[in-house]
Amino acid sequence: MPLMLQDPPLIRRALIAGALLVLGILLVVPLAAVFTEALRLGLGTALTALTEPDALHAILLTVLMAAICVPLNLVFGLAASWAVAKHDFWGKSLLVTLIDLPFSVSPVIAGLMLVMVFGLHSFLGGLLEGWGLQVIFALPGMVLATLFITFPFVARELIPAMQATGREEEQAAYLLGANGWQILWRVTLPNVRWALLYGVLLCNARAMGEFGAVSVVSGHIRGETNTIPLQVEILYNEYNFVAAFALAAVLTLLALLTLSAKSVIEWQVRRQRAHPEAERLTNRVPLHQLPR
């Protein structure tokens, strides 16, 4: 940094201190609280709380949820980014806005909409019930809610990354005789692999941690439709704090793992920056506001 722009040390230190203070009371202290509360009665008690049948079922259901939603999201993200980043067509910016739509809809409203469509009182819900398929207060509804919420996650990482790498490599591959799958697999994906990985990780974290939308459609049936976050809520409201925080700690560890993975990925991408058209990560700028 040029010497001239160095602000006076006093101001610099004051601003850094201010930033750290904000982060401390907003992020670090609550983070520490999760683990402290979980371990209040010792590690053994916390682990016992995690191995309760209801807790185990919640963990299993959460993993199942992610196992269903993440692959679907991945396929959608690949299709959407291939269409948007590698082709020009009429209505593209509308499509991009719609892909981003779930971000601006409250999770509770998303859940409500699913209840309105598939609830027992609705036409479709009644019809499906007649066929023995219950959507709301059951797994299908929870999957739909999670899908709705996580829908943009992979696409919004992949679209900017694919736009940044341009189309010429794909065109060159096409001219050399490669078919669509060969282009995708051999040329495009290696170029955006870090963005893809990051999108999948974020999608996974959100699929496992989604609360509002899933809460509305799940019905909170213990041992049946409770994911970890829902189980956390129930335990907390029963003043079973150790068990609640023990489960919360599991999700917190997942979040911290996701963040460290992101740091590693960012470091990798920065290392590739030597190349002028290297892929990049978006940091959640709305898709329609990305530079084209």
Binding site: A79, A83, L101, L147, R167, G180
Partner: peptide, 28 residues
């Protein structure tokens, strides 16, 4: 342009419609 446009756009629009747009529209 490149191949796969119809397939990828079709899949994108279809799944977006099923997962996001129809619930929103019908609910509203």
């Amino acid at each position: 342009g490149l191949p796969g446009f119809g397939l990828s756009l079709g899949y994108t629009v279809t799944s977006l419609t099923l997962v996001v747009l129809i619930p929103l529209a019908v609910g509203l």
